[in-house]
Amino acid sequence: MIYIDPPLWPAHGTYFSHLVSDASLEELHDFAAAAGIPRRAFDGDHYDVPQARHADLVSAGAKPVDGATLVRALIAGGLRIPARERAASLVHPLRRRWHTLVPGAEDLGAELLNRWGEPHRHYHDRRHLLQVLEALHRLGCSERPVLLAAWFHDAVYDGVPGADEEASAALAEELLPPVGIPPAETAETARLVRLTASHDPQPGDEAGMLLCDADLAVLGRTPAGYDRYAADVRREYRHIEETAFTAGRRRVLQSLLARGTGLYRTAAAEQLWGGAARSNLARELAALDAGGSRAGSGSGAGDGRG
Results as ranks from 00 to 15, higher is better:
4 I>K: 09
5 D>K: 09
6 P>C: 05
13 G>N: 06
17 S>G: 03
17 S>F: 07
17 S>M: 07
20 V>D: 04
21 S>I: 03
21 S>T: 01
22 D>A: 12
23 A>I: 07
24 S>T: 08
28 L>A: 09
30 D>I: 04
39 R>Q: 13
42 F>W: 15
42 F>P: 06
43 D>S: 11
46 H>I: 00
54 H>C: 00
55 A>Y: 11
57 L>D: 09
58 V>N: 11
63 K>R: 15
63 K>M: 11
64 P>K: 09
68 A>M: 08
70 L>D: 06
73 A>G: 10
75 I>S: 13
76 A>H: 11
76 A>F: 07
78 G>H: 08
83 A>T: 11
91 V>W: 13
96 R>G: 03
98 W>T: 01
99 H>S: 14
103 P>D: 07
104 G>E: 11
105 A>G: 05
108 L>E: 10
110 A>K: 12
110 A>T: 15
112 L>A: 01
118 E>G: 11
118 E>K: 14
121 R>T: 03
122 H>K: 14
122 H>M: 12
124 H>K: 06
124 H>I: 02
126 R>N: 02
128 H>V: 07
128 H>Q: 11
131 Q>Y: 00
137 H>N: 07
143 E>Q: 13
148 L>R: 06
152 F>M: 05
153 H>L: 04
154 D>E: 10
157 Y>H: 15
157 Y>T: 00
157 Y>V: 01
160 V>P: 04
160 V>E: 14
161 P>D: 05
161 P>C: 01
162 G>P: 05
162 G>S: 06
168 S>C: 13
169 A>V: 10
173 E>K: 07
175 L>M: 14
176 L>N: 10
179 V>P: 02
179 V>F: 04
183 P>T: 04
186 T>Y: 01
190 A>R: 12
191 R>D: 03
191 R>S: 06
192 L>V: 13
198 S>F: 09
201 P>N: 06
202 Q>S: 13
207 A>S: 14
210 L>R: 14
210 L>N: 03
213 D>V: 11
215 D>A: 12
220 G>E: 01
223 P>C: 06
227 D>S: 14
227 D>L: 01
230 A>P: 02
230 A>F: 05
233 V>S: 13
235 R>Y: 08
235 R>G: 11
236 E>C: 11
240 I>K: 13
243 T>R: 15
245 F>L: 15
246 T>R: 15
248 G>F: 01
248 G>Q: 05
250 R>L: 01
251 R>S: 08
252 V>F: 00
252 V>P: 04
253 L>Q: 08
253 L>D: 08
253 L>S: 09
256 L>Q: 14
257 L>I: 14
259 R>H: 09
264 Y>G: 05
264 Y>R: 09
264 Y>H: 11
266 T>V: 02
266 T>Q: 06
268 A>F: 00
272 L>P: 03
273 W>G: 05
276 A>V: 02
280 N>T: 00
281 L>Q: 07
291 G>D: 00
292 G>Q: 11
292 G>D: 13
295 A>G: 15
297 S>F: 06
300 G>I: 08
300 G>C: 06
302 G>L: 12
303 D>G: 15
304 G>N: 07
